[in-house]
């Protein structure tokens, strides 16, 4: 099972530096991917934590929304860890896919590429592969069906309990 821990992961800044940071934000500690700035961590069970960290970056590069924190991308891809735990084939699909991404990216690996354009170029080259399609397909629901992100996009969700919009602005447009 993957758990997303809220709150301080409990590593000192020194310790974090010692372990080395991945990308700008995410840190690998034991079997977890940790975001020290934002106080969450994600423990992996089946996939390597490095793989998970790359998946998170890949998820952002597929559906980049600069106003969304990494945490939402982490939640969106964590099902791959769960599935990998149950299905060796899925584990292989993801691990091999990420290894391939790193190889294509060159020495620093996928996360070592500084510009989104560089990473997107790598993704473009593999966009028809089952690996890419599995990750992208999973994100459509995994990312956009998180209720916590809806307000960021101005979507208000459930409305019945509030009496619908009949007196809450269904026709409040003013600029026409």
């Amino acid at each position: 099972m993957v758990t997303i821990h809220e709150g301080r992961p409990g590593l000192s800044r020194r310790e974090l530096l010692k372990r080395g940071s991945i990308g700008a934000l995410l840190v690998i500690a034991g079997n977890a991917v940790i975001s020290p700035e934002n106080a969450w961590g994600l423990e992996t069970a089946a996939l390597k934590p490095e793989t998970m960290a790359t998946l998170i970056q890949m998820a952002r590069d597929i559906y980049p929304h600069d106003q969304l924190a990494d945490k939402f991308y982490a939640v969106a891809v964590k099902s791959h860890d769960e599935q990998a735990g149950k299905d060796a084939k899925h584990k292989e699909l993801i691990e091999a896919g990420i290894a391939d991404l790193d190889k294509r990216a060159g020495t620093g690996g996928y996360r070592g590429l500084g510009w989104e354009e560089e990473r997107v170029a790598v993704l473009k080259a593999i966009e028809t592969t089952p690996f890419f399609q599995a990750v992208r397909g999973g994100l459509v629901v995994g990312l956009y069906n998180q209720k916590e992100i809806w307000p960021v996009f101005g979507y208000e969700g459930e409305s019945y309990s509030k009496g619908g919009y009949v007196s809450r602005g269904f026709d409040d447009i003013e600029w026409l």
């Binding site: 597929i62 559906y63 980049p64 929304h65 106003q67 997107v120 966009e127 992208r136 459509v140 629901v141 990312l143 956009y144 996009f153 101005g154 979507y155």
Partner: peptide, 21 residues
């Protein structure tokens, strides 16, 4: 997200959703 451009990805897709409202 599922139906605007099925299979679509990248900024061309996400900047559309950014202006959902």
């Amino acid at each position: 997200a599922a139906f605007l451009n099925p299979g679509g990805w990248g900024r061309s897709f996400t900047t559309a959703l950014d202006h959902y409202d």
